[in-house]
């Protein structure tokens, strides 16, 4: 693992002409995006619009049919990129390893890459768990945690990596509103503290407008609009307005 540059450890991400189909069904239809160093970039869109598939391409879990993803100008598919840049992803389900304790999960990156002595890893794990409000839960297993706790443990696991790029897949789904706010604050404070480039995929409008520097709206595999939260609100695009103003109006109004 190379050390990041001391001034700005974060990275930029460039996506050019990204296309992906599954079973002949196009999911991403030519995505172009420029994500700047150190920003919180939220990708919003309705369910099934291709958000999570896009995120998986950015971290190299999927191979594009066409187009490319560049991290600091280097293709994510080229060998050595994963060694050169520290990247982390917080999965929707947390994706903690069920056979390991919370502490082992959080310290896994350091243990497997043999980056620190055992005692120091234990100290770092305890620090990160405290940071996400899970102090003293090292010996618990993921099955003993609630959904929100799993997500926070997954964030702690990402923090240990000291990432230059962090991706969040639906970080507030399945969480109560209070926990969703806590997670949102965590994403924001992490970004401000270590200046990590953060890409968040979500359909949670409140989260997006609360934390984003810029937002991209994706629909049916195509980027509709990219802009700041204010630019998005001011957009006259009908599909943007429809997505931003959709509300629960199921009950008839009382006379």
């Amino acid at each position: 693992m190379s050390d990041p540059t001391p001034r700005d450890p974060s990275v930029n991400v460039t996506i050019r002409g990204l296309r992906k189909s599954f079973g002949g069904e196009p999911v991403l239809k030519g995505i172009d995006l420029d994500i700047r160093r150190g920003e919180i970039f939220v990708i919003m869109g309705p369910s099934g619009s291709g958000k999570s598939v896009l995120l998986k391409h950015i971290i190299g879990l999927e191979t594009p049919d066409a187009g490319e993803i560049l991290i600091e100008g280097e293709s994510i598919q080229s060998p050595g990129v994963m060694d050169k840049y520290r990247m982390a992803m917080v999965f929707q389900s947390g994706a903690l390893l069920n056979s390991l304790t919370v502490g082992e999960n959080v310290g896994l990156y350091l243990t497997e890459h043999r980056l620190k002595p055992r005692a120091e890893i234990a100290r770092i794990v305890a620090d990160k768990l405290e940071l996400v409000g899970l102090k003293g839960r090292e010996d618990m297993y993921p099955s003993e945690l609630s959904g929100g706790m799993k997500k926070r443990a997954a964030i702690a696991r990402s923090l240990v990596i000291e990432p230059q790029l962090i991706l969040y897949d639906e970080p507030t789904s399945e969480l109560d509103p209070l926990m969703a706010v806590t997670i949102g604050e965590e994403i924001l404070s992490l970004n401000r503290r270590i200046h990590v480039t953060s890409i968040v995929v979500s359909h949670d409008r409140e989260l997006a407008f609360g934390i984003a520097d810029r937002i991209a709206l994706i629909n049916e595999g195509t980027i509709i609009l990219v802009g700041t939260p204010d630019e998005l609100r001011a957009s006259a695009e009908p599909i943007v307005q429809k997505f931003l103003t959709a509300d629960h109006k199921l009950k008839p109004k009382q006379p």
Partner: peptide, 20 residues
């Protein structure tokens, strides 16, 4: 079964993102 469930529940993806 063990590795299959790790694949289905994205644990293997998580390992890959950690470059393990």
């Amino acid at each position: 079964a063990e590795i299959g469930s790790m694949a289905v529940y994205q644990e293997i993806d998580a390992l890959r993102t950690m470059n393990i």
